[in-house]
């Protein structure tokens, strides 16, 4: 009897501003596994979806960047908890997308969850390594603190559909940025499922927005968008022509640009580079009151 069940086929949708809309363009494309078997239809986002996602990310920025680091860490840890609960689903999606054995896919998912937890822990520690007191020759306390740069467009890397994705998204949002993520075109399903995880954890709507579609098509309007503060070009690792083009477009409003590392191994220790790439430094000079002209002793 159970073999007679009709398949419940899933319609994947975008994740923008905490909601799951269809693409404004109405387009979808076929997602296949590594052997070319049909898996599902994913929405093919247009530049207007990208624009809407930037608006949502901008709207979410004051709340998310203004939240305490402790709170952001808690929220991200909660995401890791939710990921853990859907471990089996992600393992199956990663196995299909990347052509891995079940065990290897599970290892990727575990590594992704661990990576997420690792980044969550950085939320209230990044200020210690990216900021601090500066020695100055004057009667001032001189303190530098890192601040999130704003809305970051993330072109997720190809070839590592969950671990690679988590490795580029988590470092962006943990410091208080909001993100517009363009999932890997060939394997968008783990990213779209991650969106469902984010929607059911405590991440405010708009902090992460997930688009599926072509990085070349969506990269151009995002890189040229005047209200985007930084772009991560991880998707262009194998296409230096596109990377250069996007970098030129991004120069217009002085966006921060993170160029892709050549053929990165996503299981290696990520270091703090990806977090620090999307921070601004605010320095304050505060008079100490001592060493003044009056010569007081304190």
């Amino acid at each position: 009897m159970s073999t007679d069940r009709v398949n419940v086929l899933k319609t994947y949708k975008l994740y923008v501003g905490g909601k799951f809309p269809r693409s404004e363009s109405g387009r979808v494309y076929e997602v296949t596994d590594s052997k070319g078997n049909w898996l599902a239809n994913a929405p093919r986002s247009s530049r207007k979806d990208a624009r809407d996602a930037v608006v949502a990310a901008r709207k979410a920025f004051p709340g998310w960047s203004g939240a305490t680091a402790y709170n952001r860490g808690q929220v991200l840890y909660r995401v890791a908890e939710m990921l853990e609960g859907r471990r089996e689903q992600f393992a199956a999606e990663v196995a299909a997308a990347e052509g891995l054995s079940r065990a290897k896919a599970a290892a990727q998912v575990d590594a992704a969850i661990d990576r997420w937890v690792w980044y969550a822990g950085w939320s209230d520690k990044v200020a210690q390594i990216a900021g601090g007191a500066n020695p100055v020759a004057g009667p001032y306390f001189n303190l530098s603190t890192p601040e999130p740069t704003g809305v970051v467009a993330v072109l997720a890397p190809a070839g590592s559909s969950l671990l690679g994705l988590v490795s580029v998204v988590a470092p962006v949002i943990v410091t208080g940025n909001t993100a517009v993520v363009v999932a890997d075109e060939a394997a968008p399903l783990p990213a779209l499922s991650l969106a469902e995880v984010l929607a059911t954890s405590d991440v405010p709507g708009g902090v992460v927005n997930v688009l599926a579609g072509s990085a070349a098509e969506l990269g151009a309007p995002l890189a040229a968008h005047q209200d985007v503060n930084a772009v991560d070009l991880a998707a262009t690792a194998s296409d230096t022509g596109l990377a250069t083009e996007l970098e030129v477009a991004a120069a217009d409003n002085l966006k921060r640009v993170l160029r892709p590392a050549p053929a990165g191994d996503w299981t290696a220790d990520p270091g703090t580079g990806r977090m620090l790439a999307f921070l601004e430094t605010k320095t304050v000079w505060h008079p100490t009151g001592g060493l003044g002209a009056a010569g007081s002793s304190y």
Partner: peptide
């Protein structure tokens, strides 16, 4: 209007 003249999406900073 800025989007139409420049081809780039504008933002509230402008």
């Amino acid at each position: 209007r800025q989007k139409l003249s420049s081809g780039r999406y504008s933002g509230p900073d402008y």
